[in-house]
Amino acid sequence: MAGRSARRWVAAVPQQVRHLGAIFALLVAGLVGARQVLVPKTFGERGHYRAAAVDSIVAQEIGYAGHAACETCHPDIADKKGQSYHRGVACEVCHGPQAAHVLAPMDHKPPAPRERAYCPLCHGYNPSRPTGFPQIDPVLHNPVRPCISCHDPHDPTPPHPPESCAACHGEIARTKAISYHAELPCTQCHAVDRRHSVSPRQQRPSKPTTREFCGRCHAQDADSPPEIPRVDLASHGPGYVCWQCHYPHHPEAR
C-alpha cells in the first residue's frame, strides 16, 4: 500500500524533474565525495586553513643563530664588544648567518668583512641618517686604508682621538665649507672640551644662546670687517634667537 502510493507520488512528479533531479543528486554526491577525499586532513582544525601548514613553516631552517648563541663560545669578544659602541650590534650583522657554524664550528667558518667598502654601509655619510650617528666621508676619511687598520670592529673607538671635527661631523663640515661661514673654525662658536673627541656624548660642546653672540660680528656697531652684513639687533626679528631663522652652518639658506 505504502509502496504503491509512493510510486504514484513519484509518477506525479514530471519526468523532467525526476531525470534532472537524479543528475543533480549525482553531481552533489560527487562534490561531497570529492570533498571527503580531497580536502586536506588538517584543514579547519584551527581556522579556515591547513593546520599542517604551520608545521612546515615552523620546520624552516634557521640561518641566524642569534647573538646569545655566539656569546657562549666567544665570551671574550662578547665582553669586549659589550663595553664598546658596538654593544648593540649583533655578531651576525657583520659575520653573516651562522647557525651552521654553531652546529659545526670547525666546518663552517664565519666570514669577516675586511674591505673598506663594508663599514660605510652604516658609517658612510648620508644626510638621511639620524643626527648624531657617527658618519665619515668614505672618500676623504683616511683614504685607501681599510677601516680595521685603525678601528677594531669589536671596539671601534679609534686608538687616537680624531684630529678634526669633520671626521665625525662630516655633514656639518661640508655644509659649512660652501657657506659664507667657511672660514670660521668650529671653535669660533663652540667651546669644545678636550674629552669630547673620546666621549662625545658625555662632553658636549657648547652652543651660542644669545642674539648678542651673533651681534659680535653682525651688529651695526660690531668691531668686524666692513664686508660682513649688519643688522639692527633692536629691530631685526626681535624676540627670536638668530639660529631660529638662520642656520649658522649655512646662514644664507632659507
Binding site: P14, Q15, Q16, R18, H19, L20
Partner: peptide, 11 residues
C-alpha cells in the same frame, strides 16, 4: 534529452 522524452501537453 536525459531520457526525458515525455511530450504530453502537460509535460
Amino acid at each position: 534529452t536525459l531520457g526525458a522524452t515525455d511530450l504530453s501537453e502537460g509535460a
